[in-house]
């Protein structure tokens, strides 16, 4: 083709264009798109994995928080239970103490009454014995024993009694 600078040939340019168009199409369909699709798929796969891991982490975090709150509530419950128990214990203790006191007082009173009874009984028996001794002494006096003998006998009898 004469007259065109550098022998530019439009027909050959179109042939080059035809060649490149086929190459572009083939490379796009056979290489570029499949590789890009694979890369996008892998990216999506890892993004999905990442999202799942994040979800699992969030779930774990939330369950940890719920367990922590449950633990805290358990602590509070245990404290309340402890307080209740100690209160009950205190009441029971007081009850038992008062019962013991009452019982002790009753025992003391009973003992006192018994002692009083015993005392009066002893006094009575002693009085009776004294009167018996006196009576005996009077009888002996009346029978002619000396005062000294009577007194000695009285002392002996008293001594014997005391033994």
């Amino acid at each position: 083709m004469t007259g065109v600078p550098l022998n530019v040939d439009w027909q050959q340019i179109l042939l080059h264009l035809f060649n490149f168009t086929i190459l572009f199409g083939a490379l796009y369909i056979l290489l570029y798109k499949p590789v890009k699709d694979f890369m996008a798929g892998r990216e999506a796969h890892y993004a999905d994995m990442d999202a799942k891991a994040e979800q699992a982490l969030a779930d774990a975090q939330s369950s940890k928080e719920s367990y922590e709150s449950k633990l805290q509530s358990f602590d509070a419950e245990i404290k309340a239970e402890k307080a209740k128990m100690s209160e009950e214990l205190e009441t029971e203790k007081e009850k038992k103490l008062s019962a013991a006191k009452t019982e002790a007082e009753t025992i003391i009173q009973d003992a006192k009454a018994q002692a009083e009874k015993e005392k009066s009984k002893i006094v009575k028996s002693a009085q009776k014995e004294i009167s018996d001794i006196i009576n005996e002494a009077m009888d002996k006096l009346a029978l002619g024993e000396s005062d000294a003998d009577v007194f000695d006998k009285f002392l002996d009898a008293a001594e014997e009694k005391s033994k």
Binding site: L15, L23, A26, L27, L30, L31
Partner: peptide, 20 residues
Amino acid sequence: GLIAGFIVSGILILFALFCR
């Protein structure tokens, strides 16, 4: 150059086909 272009395109297409 045009023949070279055709040959290069052929090589590239064959390579792409092989990869595919």
